[in-house]
Nucleic acid binder design. Sequence first.
DNA 1: CTATTATTAGAGTATATACTCTACTCAGTC
DNA 2: GACTGAGTAGAGTATATACTCTAATAATAG
Lengths: 223, 223
Amino acid sequence: MKTRDKILLASLELFNERGERNTTTNHIAAHLAISPGNLYYHFRNKSDIIYEIFQEYEKLVDYYLVIPDDRPLTVADMTFYLESVFDGLWSYRFFHRDLEYLLDCDPRLRSDYRDFTNRCLAAMKTIFEKLAEAGIVQEQPEELREVMALNIWLVVTNWMAFLKTAHGSTGDEGLSLTALKQGIYQVLTLEMPYLMPEYRDEVLAIREKYRPVLPEQRDSVVA
Amino acid sequence: MKTRDKILLASLELFNERGERNTTTNHIAAHLAISPGNLYYHFRNKSDIIYEIFQEYEKLVDYYLVIPDDRPLTVADMTFYLESVFDGLWSYRFFHRDLEYLLDCDPRLRSDYRDFTNRCLAAMKTIFEKLAEAGIVQEQPEELREVMALNIWLVVTNWMAFLKTAHGSTGDEGLSLTALKQGIYQVLTLEMPYLMPEYRDEVLAIREKYRPVLPEQRDSVVA
DNA sequence: CTATTATTAGAGTATATACTCTACTCAGTC
DNA sequence: GACTGAGTAGAGTATATACTCTAATAATAG
């Protein structure tokens, strides 16, 4: 594997584990057992590394959110969208953690991220539309779809942060797959009132699979 | 005004404007035209300043969320809760911006914040309960109230961040009161499906007042 | 084999950051 | 009028951070 790619990979790993703020370029180099000079041979600066990682993230999510235009959407599609998006979010979780600072540092990133957000919101709106066409959710006015999409976006992008702040101790330890998936439960709860009777039970059954074992795990998960 | 209080005030101001990460103790001292030594005479370290500001924030929100137990809740109460919470959020907006890092730095803060979150969620659940008793929203199972409260919490606490990231350029300039209040619109949209027919129109009229002028302001607000 | 280019090491730098230390002032008090 | 102690100034420190520079080595092309 090329050094350049190794740098990207190690950066992502360290950013996710310890936060971008706590990860210096020297740390990254040390982690790979290469010299700082070497790192700066491959990247002009730290921002460039972050920018490139963002672009991967963007590509991944765009790929996940492709909407078939030759067939109606199914409940399975909806589940897949949710699962995928949370997976993507998990893989690049450092990004949403320090989002505001990162955008302040890099105007390119700010404008790209804005476009990215709008693209995601638009995709969500289309998904709603097609779910309505498929008779899974009720038809809704354009405007409501828009506001709903935004609410779901807020829940999805901040679910991870909530888990990390609401739970005990410091790090990732407490963040299990179960907890992660409770995010899907949250989103499906938002959609619930809009489900068509014919599909209501099916979707509720899926939702049930993501229900947290404990109603609310408010204690530290560490032993 | 005592130097100590001036430090707290200036810190909050600078944190909100430029972010905690971009505000050093030296900046704070310079802003007040006092020496760094003086600042450190009043506070052991930066964390202590932040912790104390958080306690103010906590007190304010706790005060806002007091629930009357001698009378049923009204639609006006609900509006007041929403308005107040967004005001509080605005006054201490730096806090949610760098939340994860701040909690990593200070275990006291982490545990206090966890309690604070739980208190807020509990208050929201109680508010739902009392709104149902008052016939404003439908009775819901305990579990649904809990999940709904959490969704609203996510929308409320991250609304500001969304505005700052989704809009153009860098700073606060774009963040108008109108934009801020669109957050209330988002929350009321979440509640909409659960409104009782008798109050539906009244609440929808209130919601309408917070509707953004433009459906989606996706351009930079700066001239 | 040679020339060129890509890659790397590693010491070094300028700047910033959180924080300390010493000394001074000045209001109140015995 | 000496004494105390809260309050303040301001220079100073240890450390870290992002990044640079030079020189050496590996890879590759002609």
